[in-house]
């Protein structure tokens, strides 16, 4: 059933230049597609979190399980594992292709940085099987010196509550 209580999204903030954020997201997607996972982690702040909820509209990652929920420490371990030769779930490696679009800047939540919302499509091919994922990214991006960093990345999959085979490559 449609949720009639939902508020209509606010119009994007025209004062901020969305293109700089879009360029960042495209760069991030490329790092993931091309397997530069260590460089991907380097985009995150020291206290960053990475979250893939398992329920639509999931309120938090603490009272409900998540497909992935990593603080910085677990994110580093997740990525280190990806380069271990004995990661059997990546033997053979997945090939992925991501498209990021519909980039908008969302109203501030009061936390530092800018919330950038985007749509993504991710195709994963591995061992004669192709999987399709799609959904919404929310990035909270903060400036560190001249660089842009990810303080929070939330990935809302349209099929988050479907039965799924293992998810190994980050979204």
């Amino acid at each position: 059933m449609l949720d009639k209580t939902k508020k209509i999204p606010a119009l994007p903030d025209a004062k901020l230049d969305v293109r700089a954020y879009e360029a960042f997201l495209i760069h991030e997607a490329r790092l993931l597609d091309e397997g530069f996972f260590d460089d991907w982690v380097a985009l995150f702040t020291d206290d960053a979190r990475y979250w893939v909820p398992i329920e639509a509209g999931q309120a938090d990652p603490f009272e409900t399980v998540s497909l992935m929920y990593d603080d910085r420490r677990l994110l580093e371990t997740r990525v280190r594992r990806l380069s271990d030769p004995r990661i059997y779930s990546q033997e053979p490696r997945s090939r992925t292709s991501r498209t990021v679009n519909n980039v908008t800047i969302e109203p501030s939540t009061g936390e530092p940085g800018v919330i950038v919302r985007s749509k993504f499509v991710l195709v994963e091919y591995r061992r004669e099987d192709q999987r399709l994922f799609a959904g919404t990214y929310f990035h909270r991006l903060v400036g560190e010196g001249n660089a842009m960093r990810i303080a929070m990345k939330k990935v809302e999959l349209v099929n988050c509550d479907a039965p799924l085979d293992g998810l190994v490559v980050p979204f």
Binding site: A48, L74, T77, D84, R86
Partner: peptide
């Protein structure tokens, strides 16, 4: 054998990196 990759990754993880408790539990288990 099967979990070698996560064991190795967890063993090499520095414990002074930020955790809100989630990573700490996970890494201990691995």
């Amino acid at each position: 054998y099967t979990h070698r990759s996560s064991i190795a990754a967890a063993q090499q993880q520095k414990d002074d990196v930020f955790s809100d408790g989630t990573g700490e539990i996970a890494i201990r288990q691995m």
